[in-house]
Design a protein around this nucleic acid. Structure first.
Length: 222
DNA sequence: ACCCAGGTGGCCC
DNA sequence: GGGCCACATGGG
C-alpha cells in the first residue's frame, strides 16, 4: 500500500479549497454529448485551444452529425481537424468511435446512456484510439456516470505534493473513489478544478506562493 | 529555438 | 507489466 502520511480526508478538503478558490468550472465545454465525446478524442495530448479550432471546423463541415462524419473520407476528415494535431491518427480514431456509436447505439446518446456503465466502459476501451482516460471522460462528462477521470495533471499535482504515488491508472482511480462520495457532480468538478489548478499555478512550480493548496502542506514543508 | 499540451497503441524486453 | 517511441499543431 503506497498510502502516504496524509490525513484521511485530505482529498475532500482539497476539493473544497479548490472549489472555493476557483468556483465551479462547469465542465465539459461543449453544447451537447456528441461534441463532448468528439472533444474527448481530439484533446488527447493536445492544447484545448487547438481542439476548439478543430471542433469549429468539424461543426461547420458536418454539424457533428455522426452519419455525415462517418461518410467523410479519412483524408477530408483529417484536413478538417488539422489544428488539433496528430490529425491523421485522430481522424482514424474519430471514425472508429463514430462507427461504434452508430453500430451499437444507432448514433443515439439516449440509447448509449442506458447501457450498463461497466459494460459501456469495456466496450469503449475496445475502440481503437480510446484509452482509459478518454473512455472515462466520455462516461463522466458526456454521460454523467460516476467515473473519476485520471490525467497527467492529476498525477503531477498529487505526486509533487507528495500526496499519492500510484503506479497504474486503476491505482490512482481507486485512491480517488475510495476517499470521495460516489457522485458524478463531485468527480466532474474535481477533475476540472485540478486542470484549472495545474494550468494556473502548478505547471512549473508545484509549491508556489500562490497555490491555493499551500496552507494544507505547511506541516510538511518544515 | 525551444517546450508543452485535458493520450494511445505498437513495439520491445 | 513497464519503458520507449511516433503521432503534429499552435501558443508561450
Amino acid at each position: 500500500m503506497s498510502q502516504p502520511n496524509t490525513a484521511p480526508n485530505i482529498l475532500f478538503k482539497i476539493y473544497q479549497v479548490l472549489l472555493n478558490h476557483f468556483g465551479s468550472q462547469n465542465w465539459w465545454p461543449g453544447e451537447n454529448e456528441i461534441e463532448i465525446m468528439v472533444g474527448a478524442i481530439l484533446t488527447q495530448n493536445t492544447n484545448w485551444q487547438n481542439v476548439e479550432k478543430g471542433i469549429k471546423n468539424l461543426k461547420e463541415a458536418t454539424n457533428l452529425d455522426p452519419i455525415i462524419i462517418n461518410k467523410l473520407p479519412l483524408k477530408k476528415l483529417a484536413k478538417i481537424i488539422k489544428p488539433t494535431g496528430f490529425y491523421n491518427l485522430k481522424a482514424k480514431r474519430l471514425k472508429e468511435f463514430i462507427k461504434f456509436f452508430l453500430k451499437e447505439y444507432q448514433g443515439k446518446v439516449e440509447t448509449m446512456e442506458k447501457e450498463d456503465e461497466k459494460i459501456l466502459r469495456e466496450k469503449l476501451l475496445k475502440v481503437k484510439g480510446i484509452g482509459k482516460e478518454t473512455a472515462d471522460s466520455i462516461l463522466l462528462y458526456a454521460l454523467n456516470k460516476p467515473v473519476f477521470v485520471i490525467d497527467n495533471y492529476t498525477k503531477r499535482i498529487f505526486t509533487r505534493h507528495k500526496l499519492f504515488f500510484g503506479k497504474s491508472y486503476e491505482e490512482w482511480q481507486e485512491y480517488f473513489i475510495k476517499n470521495l462520495p460516489k457522485d458524478p457532480k463531485i468527480y466532474n468538478e474535481y477533475h476540472a478544478l485540478l486542470v484549472k489548478l495545474a494550468k494556473t499555478y502548478c505547471l512549473k512550480n508545484p509549491l508556489c506562493d500562490y497555490c491555493p493548496l499551500k496552507f494544507l502542506f505547511q506541516w510538511q514543508s518544515k
